[in-house]
Nucleic acid binder design. Sequence first.
DNA 1: TTTTCATCTTGATATTGTCAAGATCAACGA
DNA 2: TCGTTGATCTTGACAATATCAAGATGAAAA
Lengths: 231, 231
Amino acid sequence: MASSQSRKRGTYHHGNLREALIDTAFAMIEEDGVESLTIRRVAERIGVTHAAPSHHFADKNELMLALATEGFARFRTALGSVMHISNPLERLSAMGRAYVRFALDHPGAYRLIMGPALSRIQIPAPHAVESGSLDHRTLAASEGTFDMLESTVAEAMQGHTAIGGAGVSGVAFLAWSAMHGAALLFLDEMIDCKLPDDSTDGFPRLLDEVIAFVEAGIALSPRGASPSSRT
Amino acid sequence: MASSQSRKRGTYHHGNLREALIDTAFAMIEEDGVESLTIRRVAERIGVTHAAPSHHFADKNELMLALATEGFARFRTALGSVMHISNPLERLSAMGRAYVRFALDHPGAYRLIMGPALSRIQIPAPHAVESGSLDHRTLAASEGTFDMLESTVAEAMQGHTAIGGAGVSGVAFLAWSAMHGAALLFLDEMIDCKLPDDSTDGFPRLLDEVIAFVEAGIALSPRGASPSSRT
DNA sequence: TTTTCATCTTGATATTGTCAAGATCAACGA
DNA sequence: TCGTTGATCTTGACAATATCAAGATGAAAA
């Protein structure tokens, strides 16, 4: 109750407006999407006038940056919950499921951290660092998640080449692309994921096939080609 | 010269405002992105007052719908340019390259037809038809492109199961997801595609590995498992 | 107690989508 | 030829939004 939305004493100074703005805005993007988020509505919901947020975030930009940081933290936590799995192939599959599950469960947050809403809004591109006005925490968090993926793929491939001659970065990119694309296709309702023949806990059946395909592509490789064998 | 932007006689009636709106708006989303598109700016660029477009498109919605229809037509043309390839595996690879190339060459159009800008804006979801106010031409165009993909995958798999036990719809979904995700990761600069070690005509090297991986996963399958063999 | 300064309010401006009412003009019928 | 009609475009307005400027408030420091 006495959370970030509560005021301290009178009605003039809020007490911790900055935190309240982030929390409330985060809840609002989960309810109505990133695009319909307005500073004025956030302020109104908190019970503060429309210009109050400007003293904590110069721009709507900066609010979005703070939201992205928060979103990345939650995203990283969601992915980290499966990192304890010792078998790299199993871990990779679990990462894929956790990835898409997060996107489906938190569409607003996912669109915020991965979608164009941020990059358009002058946000750090994980691999395009140019010392601009980028949020280092967001950057570190996003790079951390990609490292988790790449290291898991490397561990699963054990120095071998995957089918088709793909290397570690290629397979990691495939995995990321496929999960990212699948999540967005689901979210944008470009494809129907509400089919009755789902697998465990309502998880899209099609996605299981995708994950199994990638997993098999990695697992099959050692028998076929390794960097030191063949030509 | 006397294209869609030209007026007919005096300065009052434009002559073909509707076409001019679509053409100009399409050019503008390629220049500045979908989000910065403004009805007033389109009207101003054409040389017409801000309320003129309302007589051709009731909403910004309807303008977007028309733009999506146009974008889908161009997208379909781009994909269709490789449909003459007889070998299904080669055709599938070419489709993947054409897909991403279109997205990279026409970011605005791609985001318009595949991105959330449309679905949020009350646009037909290809597989979520519900007899609402959906544009049938757009719908038909999008379904046609997905059919091109699915039939090519089916032809390449020849009744067999792909690695990991994936069926035709699973592989088609993987291909679409991977290309969609890769395109967006490139466009959003989540990953760097401007590497010096690109393959032919500046095409991202990583994407070649992704395509080769999927291609190999399909090609390898007949030797392993088919629906009638094994268990 | 007085001062200082971050915080919040009030008020204003520019941009945007949308609506309503009027102006213009080409086509059509008498 | 001339008046009518209806589509097309303009003018003007309104509400919502981001942003800025100036003033009010009050807690902490001096």
